[in-house]
Nucleic acid binder design. Structure first.
Length: 114
DNA sequence: TCCTTGACATTTT
DNA sequence: TAAAATGCCAAGG
């Protein structure tokens, strides 16, 4: 079931992250109305149709670390994209204290009401 | 059922 | 002390 309304909601929530900010899988899951389903978010990002544009590179782990191994090319790509957007990435790690996305209520409601 | 992926806790620097 | 790295556990496809 790759074409699931839940997935679309997750992708929508991910795309709601503004440039220059990042969020965690857990937060995305929460914002998407799927508390505790962070793994589903990670899986869904892997099932995103290539024709859709999803800001997967703005989604990190709860502790700010990238979800890919440091040597992975995806990780390097993600790092590059984030840095281009103004997010400092050091050792596959992002300062959540500085770059964590603080969504407003309206944004969250958009995800819930989708 | 097994594999992949994220969170949380603990330990190290 | 605080921040970062590693390991273990749980959930979903």
């Amino acid at each position: 079931m790759s074409y699931n309304p839940l997935y679309q909601r997750i992708w929508k929530t991910v795309n709601a992250i503004p440039v220059g900010y990042v969020s965690s899988y857990g937060k995305i899951a929460d914002f998407a109305g799927l508390p505790g389903k962070a793994r589903m978010v990670g899986k869904s990002l892997g099932y995103v149709p290539k024709e859709l544009q999803v800001n997967w590179h703005r989604v990190l782990r709860s502790n700010g670390q990238l979800a890919f191994p440091k040597g992975s090319e995806l990780a390097l790509k993600q790092t590059g994209l984030l840095q281009e957007e103004g997010v400092a990435v050091l050792n596959n790690r992002v300062r959540m204290k500085e770059f964590e996305w603080h969504p407003d209520l309206a944004t969250m409601l958009q995800g819930f009401e989708y």
